[in-house]
């Protein structure tokens, strides 16, 4: 028999199997915590920082990523406070400035309430979410790609930048990449990047009925359907 613990997320008392992460439990119970780097059945990295929540311990709250936080008995989690929304909006703003050329990331930015981007657009092809690296090593046991370099020079690459012998040509890395879905109006040219924000009208509905998940409409198959 699986041992269970009881925790509260946004005031709702929830029974969860021991050892699962707070994010997994929240998704299972329909509590919508925005996330990007999380993929079910893969290890969690806490790379995108979008899934931050407040973890209340002894009356003080700590902000931490819910995907790397394991459930414990009597835990108190708040996922939708003013502080969290503010921090999450900032993180989404940085992500969309780094890689505006992706529908998935544009959608996440709208979902997190980004109205305007205060940072220069970089138009990079990668946000280092690590989905491809983890699926390659954990699901396919291939380890053909990995993180190379450090700090601002960090990137995803094969050893010596040559085609890897370990690659099984499965293409899962491309399937999971948030950069493979282009924005609705087509790819953006360098120097002409902008915050799309066309789905913002849907946010009204989401704010007036917070129990309804708009993730599927907004992510259009990225988060809920196409993991």
């Amino acid at each position: 028999m699986i041992p269970y613990v009881t925790l509260s997320i946004d005031g709702a008392l929830i029974k969860a199997a021991k050892g699962t992460s707070v994010l997994d439990v929240a998704i299972e119970y329909g509590i919508c915590i925005p996330h990007l780097c999380h993929v079910p059945n893969l290890s969690d990295l806490g790379a995108c920082r979008l899934c931050i929540v407040e973890h209340v311990v002894n009356g003080r709250s700590k902000v931490t990523t819910s995907c790397t936080l394991r459930v414990r008995e009597g835990m108190v989690i708040r996922s939708n406070t003013e502080r969290i929304r503010h921090l999450r909006r900032n993180i989404a703003e940085l992500l969309v400035a780094q890689a505006p050329n992706s529908r998935a990331i544009q959608d996440i930015a709208v979902r997190c309430g980004v109205k305007k981007v205060r940072y220069p657009f970089r138009n990079e092809n990668c946000v280092l979410c690590g989905r491809c690296v983890r699926v390659c090593s954990e699901m396919w046991q291939a380890k053909a790609i990995g993180f190379v370099g450090r700090g601002k020079d960090r990137k995803v690459d094969t050893p010596f930048s040559q085609p890897s012998e370990a690659c099984k040509r499965c293409g899962t890395c491309i399937d999971l990449c948030p950069m493979t879905i282009t924005p609705c109006d087509g790819p953006m040219k360098p120097g002409e990047e902008y915050l799309c924000g066309k789905c913002e009208s849907q946010m009204m509905e989401a704010n007036s009925s917070p129990d309804q998940c708009i993730w599927c409409d907004l992510g259009e198959g990225f988060q809920c359907g196409r993991y």
Partner: peptide
């Protein structure tokens, strides 16, 4: 050790 990991370590440290 997988080649990716060796290369990752080698490129990580200055």
């Amino acid at each position: 050790v997988p080649l990716t990991e060796v290369y990752g370590v080698a490129s990580f440290y200055k």
